[in-house]
Amino acid sequence: MATVKFKYKGEEKEVDISKIKKVWRVGKMISFTWDEGGGKTGRGAVSEKDAPKELLQMLEKQ
């Protein structure tokens, strides 16, 4: 499965696309949330040019 790689608060992170729940556009950035388990929700953002095609497809479906 595809993953999204991004930096959050200076830390490199990687999230499996299948865990992503919500995707939206903020200017030229793609923001998203995912389920971290245990009732926690993670947040992240990646530039439109660095976003994997699967993430962009999720954005178009909404």
Rank of each mutant, 00 (worst) to 15 (best):
S31Q: 10
E60H: 06
V23G: 04
D35Y: 09
F32Y: 00
S31D: 13
K19G: 09
L59A: 10
K5F: 01
A51W: 10
E60D: 06
I17E: 02
K22R: 10
K53A: 03
R25K: 11
E11N: 10
K40T: 12
S18Q: 10
V15M: 04
Q62D: 14
G44A: 14
I17V: 15
A51P: 04
K13C: 08
I17Q: 03
E11P: 00
R43I: 12
L59F: 08
F32K: 00
E60T: 09
S18D: 12
S31I: 07
G42F: 10
A45K: 03
Q57W: 06
D16T: 06
A2H: 12
S18G: 12
P52K: 02
G38H: 09
G38S: 12
G37M: 11
S47N: 08
D50N: 06
K7E: 07
G38I: 07
I20K: 00
M1L: 15
A45S: 07
W24D: 09
L56C: 15
F32H: 00
G37C: 15
E12I: 13
E11G: 10
K40S: 12
V46F: 02
K9T: 01
G27W: 07
K61E: 11
F32W: 01
G42I: 08
Y8P: 01
I17H: 02
V46Y: 01
T3E: 01
E60V: 09
K21C: 15
M29R: 13
T3L: 04
E54C: 07
K5T: 03
E12Y: 11
T41P: 07
K7P: 14
K22S: 15
K5G: 01
K19I: 11
L56S: 11
W34P: 00
W24V: 10
K5P: 00
D16K: 07
G42Y: 09
Q57P: 07
D50Y: 08
E12R: 03
V23W: 06
G10I: 01
W24G: 07
F32N: 00
E11T: 08
V4D: 00
W24A: 06
K53G: 14
I17R: 02
D16G: 06
L55F: 05
F32D: 00
I30Y: 09
M29P: 02
I20G: 00
Y8Q: 04
K21F: 14
G27N: 13
V23K: 02
V15C: 04
K13T: 04
P52T: 04
Y8S: 03
L55H: 00
V26T: 08
L56T: 13
T3D: 01
R25L: 13
Y8R: 01
M1C: 15
Q57K: 09
S47D: 13
G27E: 11
K40R: 14
V4S: 00
K7Y: 06
K13A: 03
E48T: 04
A51R: 02
Q57D: 10
P52Y: 02
F6K: 00
D16N: 07
R25D: 05
K40Q: 15
K19L: 14
G39I: 09
T3H: 03
I17S: 03
P52E: 03
T41G: 13
T33I: 11
L55S: 00
G44K: 02
L55Y: 00
S47E: 15
E36H: 06
S47W: 04
K13Q: 06
K28I: 11
K22M: 14
Q57C: 10
E36T: 08
A2S: 09
I17T: 03
W24M: 12
D16M: 10
T33V: 10
K5A: 02
E60A: 14
G10D: 06
G37Y: 09
A51V: 07
V46K: 02
G39R: 08
E11F: 06
M29Q: 13
I30L: 08
A2T: 13
M58Y: 05
Q62K: 14
M58K: 14
